[in-house]
Design a protein around this nucleic acid. Sequence first.
DNA 1: TTTGTTTCGTACGCTAACGGACTAAAGTGT
DNA 2: ACACTTTAGTCCGTTAGCGTACGAAACAAA
Lengths: 238, 238
Amino acid sequence: MTSFLIQTDIRNHLLRTLCAADFDRLRGHLVRCSFEQGAVLESPGESVAAVHFPEPGMLSLVAHAGDGTRAEAGIIGPEGMTGLALLNGVDATPHTILVQVPCRTLLIEAGPFRQALDASRTLREHLLRYAQVFSVQLAQGALCNAQFTIEQRLARWLLMCHDRSDREDLPLTHELLSQLLGVRRAGVTTGLRVLELSGALKTRRGGISIRDRAVLRTIAGASYGVPEAEYARILGGP
Amino acid sequence: MTSFLIQTDIRNHLLRTLCAADFDRLRGHLVRCSFEQGAVLESPGESVAAVHFPEPGMLSLVAHAGDGTRAEAGIIGPEGMTGLALLNGVDATPHTILVQVPCRTLLIEAGPFRQALDASRTLREHLLRYAQVFSVQLAQGALCNAQFTIEQRLARWLLMCHDRSDREDLPLTHELLSQLLGVRRAGVTTGLRVLELSGALKTRRGGISIRDRAVLRTIAGASYGVPEAEYARILGGP
DNA sequence: TTTGTTTCGTACGCTAACGGACTAAAGTGT
DNA sequence: ACACTTTAGTCCGTTAGCGTACGAAACAAA
C-alpha cells in the first residue's frame, strides 16, 4: 500500500513543521487511520504498538488510580502526538489514550519510529520539544483540578477541545464530560446551563456547539492559556 | 576547585545508576550545593541555568496560572533531577522549582550538561526514562487533585516526601502544605489531626514526624503508588 | 521578663459539589 | 405506532471544604 503523502497537506502540526529530510524519513511508514469516539489507542501496561499524529479531532490521556478511579490528565490533538513514552525510551505507560472527538491520524509503528529517532537528531529534538509542552499541560491540569470550579474547568476543557477540532459541533455527552473532569454528571449539566445562559455555547442532545470563545475565555479565566502560550513559544505557528 | 566525587557515594539515584562512562563525562562538571527550605532553583520564564541532582531532601515543581493561583504539580528528590526542560531542548518553563526539605544537590551547568547529552546516547536515554516517570507523576497528581480528599492527598504527599528525605522529622508548616496542596491552612490542620489520631504521624510546631507508613498508605489508598511502581519498573532499584 | 511573631487549634456561617434518585425528553429499533 | 434506550434536567438531603477570624500556644528577640 503505497501512500503519496504531501507534507503540506497534512493537518498535524508536528509533522507539517518537520524539516523535509525528517519528514521523508517517516513518510514511507506513515499510514492514515480513522477513529470513532471511544476508540482506545493505548492501554495501561500494554506496550505501545504505534505512535499517532492526529489530524483535527481530540484524544484524551486518562490516568488511573489502581482502584477504578480515573480522570483525564491531558489532551492531544493535531498539535501533538501519542506515544511520548516511546520517545522517552519506555515501552508502556499506566495510562489510557482514547478518542473523544473522532479523528484521523497518521500512524507509524513503534519499530520504524524508533529507527527514525535513532537516525535523526533533529527529529528527536522536534518531538521532544512537544513532550516538554505536553508536560506543562499536565502540570497545569493538576493545578486546575486543585483550584478551579467545575464551570471554569468546563470552559477550559471546551476551549482546548475546540482548539483541536475543526468542527463547530462537538459530539460530547454530559456523562462523558463528567468522567473526564472527574465530577458528577449532574454537575456538568448545571455547569453547561450556566455557560449556555452566558451565550458561550449551545447544547444539543449529545452535542455542544461553541458560539463565543471570548466568553468562554472570560469564564475559564487563568485556568486556560499557559500550555498554549508555551506551545506557541516553543513550536511556533500562528 | 577539583572535586573527587565517587559515584557509589552519591546519594542521587539517577547519577548512581549511570554507567561509569557517562558518570565520568559529568564528573568534572558536578558541583555540590546545599539549599535551605524556600530556595528557588528555577523561576517562570527564566532560562534554566543548571540542572540539579538532589541528594536526600525534597523539591517541588509549582505550576502558576497567570493570576496568582499556584499549586504544586510534582515532587523531585534523590530519585530524579531538575531541568527536564533542558533535556527536552527547551530553555525555560512556566514553573517554579523550590526547595521544601533542605537538601544538597549535585549541580551541572546548562552548557556542559547539553554537551554531555550530545556526546552520549546512553546518558540521554537514562535521563529520558526519568522524564517519562515524572510525567506519569504529573498525570497522577492531576487525577488526585480531582478525585481525592484533603486527608488522602495529605497522606500521599507525606509518603512521597518521606520517600525522598532521610529524616524522620520533616520541617513543614501547615501554611506551607496548604499552599502546595492548594487548600486552606485550616484544612491542613484538621487533616493532620486526623492522621495523628490514627497514629500515622506526630506533629510538632513547624514539623511532622512520620510514624507509621502502613497507616498512611491505607489512608492514601489508590492515590499513592502508580508513579512509584513505574519508577521501579523503568529505573529499577529498591 | 517582656514584647512581638509565627504557628496552630478551633469555630461559624456559607458555598460548591456530592450521592442518589426520579422524570422528561430525544432518539432507536421493531 | 410501539416499546426501549440513551441523554438530559431537576430536586433533596448531605458533606467537604471554603473564607474569615479569633485566641492560644510556641518560639524569638530585646
